[in-house]
Design a protein around this nucleic acid. Structure first.
Length: 759
DNA sequence: CTCCTTTGTCTTTTT
DNA sequence: GACAAAGGAG
């Protein structure tokens, strides 16, 4: 069978495995997507499965698009009839035709993170929840976790009975959910949870989809959360033709509910499962793989596997430490420029980092050096204010049920409709149980409005005109009409002359996106467009083919590969992040380590790791030691001096002896080490840290030690000088200390970072 | 009602 | 250090 000649024996075994549950453990760069694609092709071409009966699920739209394309290349247009989509868009499709069973209108909208936050703010106001004590974000993430665990508001209330500190969340959850329902909206997590509920409560619906999707394939299975797991389980339970592909070592989305146990316990869920391991790596050279293997080996409870390659040993990974983040960026940029002179294209280089904030300093240096680059991720295109404004207009034109959108645009641009007016209309709407927009249409009946009623009428009339206009115009034309009727460009210029140009550009970009969306599907409705927009991120459209250096977070880099990879900011406190260090939960550090593994295995030919001794973080200079992930690499596998590298120590008894020992944290060199200065010409030298009056070393943040000062004591801060302690509050992870500084006034800071010295 | 100033919070990561 | 939200003045 010629079709499968391009696969290695293991890949072929996986692609051509028989029916029943199948787990493909695919290490980084082992041809995972390729194997999955061929498996689908095998089902269609060899087993003559009707493509209609196949459901392939991925996490990103990009992955879905690529897979569909690749399958089409193998089996032809038949591929169009199968579902290849993300969890979210698959569920959206199911909900669109069935959500009325759950009591929602089938023209429901999807709230993004911003919308959720606004909603929660209103909820807190209504329930008199003190948002100083319970932040909207915290409440929302609690609700999100609950939904990822399939706990609806009633379930959560029961769960909370054992924990009174959480009753506030339970109240907020219920009110939040009611608000969403009133607005006929769902959030991201609802999309999955409601689909599961639909299947639970309506077995006939489930049965229909079970018959439809006789073959199910899931990519990146290690990133599924409980709700997604349950969804797949329900669908696959009848025929059990479930093929999942993943790598437990690349599970990096625990923070948003991914449950690594889903992949680790697959064989327990499906005892009859076939398991195939893909361990041959086609991406990197041996040194890089060895280094990555050495790091990930420090994690416990992983599926045993070891990547190998026949690509040759290649070059050793390189490590360099610098005095400041500025010098680090300088080095990376000059190294890229040097390589470019030697013939390496800019497009071959990628700089990966832990947090988006690190991009800025790198960008500055790249601009100065005149090197073309792209930053992937960061602020999502669709969450920019100007785009959200236009989308809100579209949503109101489309349905008007969604109060949130109405409130967003009612006074944008300024129409002299303020909060007081809005509150009156809102009261009127509440009393009658109608939507805000409907109430606004009856503004003349709303008591106490006075002149404001006519202002509202101008607005509702305009929406009316736009609605009429929509009926025989394309979406792009409609957007242009909105801009024209609202004088939106004028509004942007009034706001900020400088930024206006960019923003107008973005709005035009949205028009192009609308044109592209309608291209090839003339019957697409406004609702379809809005749905697409809700589920798409601009990560999906990132162009990786240009000859530009790419900057992105480690998370965004998953699934990609580059000849030259820089891992910047390899510092304990940044990567692994401060949060994961101080949480005291090993799982957190392990997740960060998997992230390091993902980063290292992106490199094909060369891996360059860098870090800085001092770095500006949250407005304060932080001094961090070399990342433990660097020190976990055996020195014979690294080029360059790793300071603070510990000697092997006798095993402590924290861990069972058959697990690799976790590297101990926060060991740092006691003696002064010479800074690595690979780029002598650029290195300007910095005064020693000590001269700034700072004690060297990283203060251990976990288990905050009680400060040796108390309220009323005189203390000294390295930057703010002398002051008096006015308050000392114990917080879960640290002491929060308030100091009244003689020269700088009142400051509140965390004790472990403030490094206050008692006088 | 709007504009301006001040204050506080934030930095993980995103479908 | 950046940006949003809240609060106060006109």
């Amino acid at each position: 069978m010629g079709m499968f000649d391009g696969l290695n024996p293991k890949q072929r075994e996986a692609a051509c495995a028989g029916d029943g549950p199948l787990l493909i453990l695919a290490g980084a760069g082992s041809g995972k997507t390729r194997t999955l694609t061929y498996r689908i092709a095998y089902l269609i071409a060899e087993k003559h499965i009707n493509p209609m009966n196949i459901l392939a699920v991925t996490f990103t739209n990009k992955a879905a698009g690529e897979m569909k394309e690749r399958v089409a290349a193998l089996v032809g247009p038949d591929a169009d009839r199968m579902w290849v989509s993300t969890f979210h868009s698959a569920c959206m499709r199911i909900l669109r035709s069935n959500i009325s069973l759950l009591g929602y209108d089938d023209r429901f909208t999807v709230y993004d993170t911003d919308d959720q936050k606004t909603t929660m703010k209103n909820v807190c106001k209504r329930l008199n929840i003190d948002t100083k004590r319970y932040k909207e974000r915290t409440i929302l993430s609690e609700i999100s976790s609950a939904k990822n665990e399939l706990m609806d508001e009633s379930g959560y209330e029961k769960y909370v009975l054992n924990d009174f500190s959480k009753t506030v969340y339970a109240r907020a959850y219920r009110e939040y959910q009611e608000t969403l329902r009133k607005n006929n909206a769902v959030d991201f997590d609802d999309i999955i949870m409601l689909t599961v509920r639909l299947f639970d409560e309506f077995p006939d619906v489930l049965e229909r989809y079970r018959e439809r999707f006789k073959y199910i394939l899931v990519d990146e299975y290690q990133d599924t959360n409980t709700a997604q797991f349950e969804l797949i389980r329900l669908l696959a339970d009848k025929y059990k033709n479930l093929c999942v592909v993943g790598d437990d070592d690349q599970s990096i989305y625990r923070f948003r509910g991914a449950n690594i146990r889903n992949i680790l316990d697959f064989e327990e869920h499906y005892p009859e499962a076939t398991v195939i391991k893909l361990e041959q790596n086609y991406r990197s050279t041996q040194y890089i793989l060895d280094a990555a293997n050495a790091v990930i080996a420090n994690n416990r409870g992983r599926k045993d596997k070891k990547l190998w390659t026949d690509a040759g040993e290649g070059k050793k990974p390189v490590f360099n430490q610098f005095d400041t983040a500025f010098e680090e960026a300088e080095y990376i940029v000059s190294d890229i420029r040097h390589r470019n002179k030697m013939g390496t294209g800019y497009g071959s280089c990628a700089v990966l980092y832990r947090t988006n904030a690190q991009a800025r300093i790198l960008e500055e240096r790249l601009i100065m050096a005149g090197i073309p680059y792209n930053v992937v991720g960061g602020v999502n295109f669709y969450s920019r204010a100007e785009i959200k404004d236009i989308i809100a207009y579209l949503k109101v034109i489309d349905s008007g049920i969604d109060d949130l959108s109405v409130r967003r645009i009612v006074n944008v641009p300024k129409r002299s409709i303020g909060n007081a007016t809005l509150e009156k209309v809102l009261d009127y709407a509440d009393a009658r149980d109608i939507s805000l927009f409907t109430a606004m249409c009856e503004a003349q009946d709303v008591p106490g409005l006075g002149k404001a009623a006519s202002k509202i009428k101008v607005f509702t009339d305009m929406i009316g005109v736009l609605r009429a206009y929509r009926d025989n115009a394309s979406i792009a034309e409609l957007i242009n009409k909105i801009i024209e009727m609202t004088d939106y460009e004028e509004y942007l210029k009034d706001q900020d002359e400088e930024k206006a140009e960019d923003k107008i550009g973005n709005v035009n970009e949205l028009v192009s996106k609308a044109v592209a969306f309608c291209d090839g599907r003339p019957d697409a409705s406004l609702s379809d467009f809005l749905e697409e927009v809700a589920l798409v991120s601009d990560l999906d459209s990132a162009d990786l083919t240009e000859e530009r250096v790419l900057l992105m977070t480690l998370h965004s880099a998953k699934g990609l590969e580059f000849p030259i990879v820089y891992l910047a900011g390899m510092e304990d406190g940044l990567f692994p992040g401060y949060m994961s260090i101080s949480s005291g939960d090993d799982e957190d550090i392990e997740e960060e380590r998997r992230l390091a593994y993902v980063g290292m295995t992106r490199a094909e030919k060369e891996l360059i790791m860098t870090c800085a001794k001092a770095r500006m973080l949250r407005g304060e200079t932080q001094f961090n030691p070399v990342s433990r992930f660097v020190t976990e690499i055996p020195s014979e596998l690294v080029e360059g001096f790793v300071p603070g590298k510990k000697k092997k120590r006798p095993a402590d008894d924290c861990y069972e002896s058959d697990y690799p020992r976790r590297a101990s944290s926060f060991s740092y060199a006691k003696k002064e080490e010479k800074p690595v200065k690979p780029v002598k010409a650029l290195y300007t030298g910095t005064a020693g840290l000590e001269s700034l009056g700072i004690k060297k070393g990283f203060q251990k943040a976990a288990e905050a030690a009680e400060p040796d000062y108390a309220v009323g004591d005189r203390v000294r801060h390295f930057k703010f000088g002398a002051g008096t302690v006015t308050a000392l509050v114990r917080e879960p992870r640290d002491y929060k200390v308030s100091v009244d500084f003689d020269a700088h006034g009142q400051k509140v800071m965390y004790a472990s970072f403030a490094k206050l010295v008692k006088e």
